[in-house]
């Protein structure tokens, strides 16, 4: 069951599209989903290489403290991101999704870990590793309570130019299918 207050983090390396993931899911939760949201992005040198992240809080009610306290969901698209950004997560009930080719080592104390060949799947279905974030969005729409594949897909397409839709629909659907298989 979706709980009222939910904290998500999307982390990886600059250029993997982590900022767009925050934008898409904020749109899906806030505008389509009618929830309150707070979206935070890493700025400055952080965003231009090295480990970077965007973070999203969703809530049915007004959001108080506007930062993550104990993330309920973390996506890690690099080993550095996984090492840097999983320490504070909810180990008991939280979900960690990693690109298993890029993140060989996951923290032992996190109970719910999903390993997915996110970038490889992107390469297979679109030939473009850059669509890995959309594969991840497809997976999140299945794995994370409070989101639906229809809602997130509509938000993805809303953020992208029409000429990119076909390719990204492929990536998104592949992410959905891979997540269904993992569940």
């Amino acid at each position: 069951m979706a709980k009222n207050h939910y904290e998500l983090r999307f982390s990886g390396t600059g250029g993997q599209g982590m900022m767009l993931m925050g934008d898409v899911l904020a749109q899906a939760a806030g505008i389509s989903g009618g929830k309150e949201i707070v979206l935070l992005k890493s700025y400055g040198p952080e965003a231009r290489g090295g480990a970077c992240r965007s973070e999203l809080i969703t809530d049915e009610d007004a959001i108080g403290y506007p930062a993550l306290v104990e993330p309920d969901f973390v996506l890690a698209m690099s080993q550095l991101a996984c090492d840097s950004y999983t320490g504070d997560m909810n180990k008991e009930n939280g979900i960690l999704l990693v690109d298993s080719d890029l993140v060989p080592n996951v923290p032992a104390d996190v109970k719910h870990v999903y390993r997915m060949r996110i970038t490889e799947i992107a390469k297979e279905v679109t030939g473009r590793p850059i669509t890995a974030n959309v594969v991840a969005l497809g997976a999140i729409s299945v794995l994370v309570p409070g989101f639906t594949p229809e809602g997130v897909k509509a938000a993805v397409l809303g953020k992208l130019a029409p000429k990119l839709h076909e390719m990204n629909i492929k990536a998104f659907d592949a992410g959905v299918a891979a997540a269904e298989a993992l569940k």
Partner: peptide, 9 residues
Amino acid sequence: ATLAHMSEK
């Protein structure tokens, strides 16, 4: 700085 850079609906 935080209010300036965070997004909300």
